Amino acid sequence: MKTVAQLLKLKASQNQQVHTIKPDQMVLEALMKMAEKNVGALPVVENGEIVGVISERDYARKLVLKGRSSVGTPVKEIMNSPVITVDSHQTVETCMGIMTDKHLRHLPVVENGQLLGLLSIGDLVKEAIAEQAELIQQLEQYIRGE
């Protein structure tokens, strides 16, 4: 299985950069940024350190359903914190296990205190499927004697 570092390298080649937001910015700003960048979550960064994650799910459950306003609510009031992170040496399989056990859809990758990337469950599932397809192809070639 590939490591997180290898997966991030593939994402980087597709010009995937990490978009972040600050804890004191308003939720509306976070929503606008998520819509503009076509992402479902943003790491919340303060003084260069990740302090939380805000997602569309947080917005729906912690703001909309409670009748609160996205204009006057800071991100820090609805973000998920503390943040569960992984380093770049973890495998895709390990990350999938963490995300399943903790019911996460987004997993920040941090190395030496620096945010390197954000993996979605979709990124991991896509990679797992690609690896399985490759294994099937190799087994079929073996069976055919190629």
Rank of each mutant, 00 (worst) to 15 (best):
K76R: 08
K76G: 01
E77K: 11
I78G: 08
I78A: 11
M79Q: 10
M79G: 03
M79N: 10
M79W: 05
M79A: 03
N80D: 10
S81F: 00
S81W: 01
S81Q: 08
S81R: 03
S81D: 08
P82I: 13
P82D: 09
V83F: 01
I84D: 09
I84H: 06
I84Q: 12
T85V: 12
T85S: 07
T85C: 02
T85R: 00
V86W: 00
V86L: 03
V86N: 06
V86P: 01
V86H: 01
D87C: 10
D87G: 02
D87N: 15
D87S: 12
D87T: 12
S88R: 03
H89I: 05
H89A: 13
H89S: 15
H89N: 13
H89F: 10
H89Y: 12
Q90R: 02
Q90Y: 15
Q90C: 06
T91G: 09
T91I: 06
V92Y: 08
E93Q: 05
E93Y: 01
T94E: 14
C95F: 14
C95E: 09
M96E: 15
M96G: 07
M96T: 02
G97V: 04
G97D: 06
G97K: 04
G97T: 08
I98K: 12
M99Q: 04
M99W: 05
T100F: 09
D101I: 12
K102T: 14
H103W: 12
H103L: 10
R105W: 15
L107D: 07
L107E: 11
P108G: 07
V109W: 04
V110L: 07
V110Q: 02
V110P: 01
E111T: 07
E111F: 06
E111R: 10
E111C: 01
E111A: 05
E111S: 12
N112G: 05
G113I: 01
G113D: 15
Q114Y: 10
Q114T: 11
Q114W: 00
Q114L: 04
L115V: 08
L115R: 13
L115T: 08
G117I: 13
G117S: 04
L118Y: 04
L118S: 01
L118V: 14
L119G: 07
L119F: 12
L119I: 06
S120C: 10
S120W: 14
S120D: 09
I121Q: 11
I121K: 09
G122E: 13
G122A: 02
G122I: 04
L124I: 00
L124G: 00
L124K: 02
V125M: 03
K126I: 04
K126L: 05
K126S: 11
K126C: 03
E127Y: 08
E127I: 07
E127G: 04
A128Q: 10
A128E: 13
A128R: 07
A128H: 08
I129W: 00
I129M: 04
I129N: 08
I129T: 11
I129D: 14
A130P: 10
A130E: 15
E131A: 13
E131I: 05
E131P: 09
E131M: 09
Q132C: 09
Q132A: 14
A133R: 00
A133S: 02
A133K: 04
A133E: 05
